[in-house]
Design a protein around this nucleic acid. Sequence first.
DNA 1: CTAGGATCCTGTCAGC
DNA 2: TGCTGACAGGATCCTA
Length: 313
Amino acid sequence: MPELPEVETIRLGLKTFILGHQLQTIKVLCQKSFLGPTDPLIGAKIIRLRRRGKALLVDLDNSLTLLIHLRMTGQLIFRSTGTEKGQAPLKASSTKTKSLSLKPLSDDNAFAGGHPTDSFYSPLPNTQTRVILKLDHGTLFFNDQRKFGFIKVLPTVEVEQDNFIASLAAEPWEIDFSDFYRILQRRTHSSIKSLLLDQKVIAGLGNIYADEALFFAGVHPARLAGTITELEAHRLLDGAIFSMEASIKSGGSTMKTYVRADGSKGNYLEQFAQVFRREGLPCRRCGHEIEKTRVAGRGTHFCPICQPLKGEL
DNA sequence: CTAGGATCCTGTCAGC
DNA sequence: TGCTGACAGGATCCTA
């Protein structure tokens, strides 16, 4: 799930908790979730949090960096010392003294980001916890249901040579339009959606913001890249920037569910999504029913009126 | 080189 | 209730 706005929200939120703090122990519960040695990390201090596309980079004061990619279902959950067990379920018939003794999670003692699940506020570690990083003032849990995500240890100076980082294109804010448009012209037989999802073409978009950008631009997701006009390409970049900025401003699509702790999801999708997961609902622009199909092997949402497959403007 | 499909893994949900 | 298959907000590898 986590796309650029979610990772950026995690970077900003986690920063206030872990910057300047020291790693004390690291427990790897799933080997494939942690690439590299843990020993050299012990005692190191976190000095910087960066982001490249959907990758989070945690720089340490010993010239090492943790490259974290959450892929589909990764989560990063920080809890201050004493709050690891999470908070008492609000709806449960809380006559039990045990749950009453749990301190509620708040912006002051906890942070959770990534794939939204109960893990944001329920007891940790749980069955989806893959790595436990203990700091001097709390614990950072790396959870990941599907084990696609990972934490990778790299010398800081070699981060840029990492295969994934090195192949990343620019983000929509910095991308050079002629570079972008040239790729659309060259890969004429790709659907435009598959190119928007390709991190080597443009960095940061995933399935949500690709669909949102296409809606914003009035472009059908299955349009072949070679048929996209310059105006449409500009509007696609504008749409990507617009939807991702709106999401970052609202705290990403999934944040702070623990505050309410009622199982409700985050706010971006509810408040701002125009098409994503809105199949069967009226288009916010024209009122026609939003449709869901499959493009580039992914579930794809669009408005057939606002995003016609045939015909130019 | 390109484009499409399978694949990694676990959980959930719809349909029988 | 239990089973089955489809699918899931990502990226890579394999094939033709």
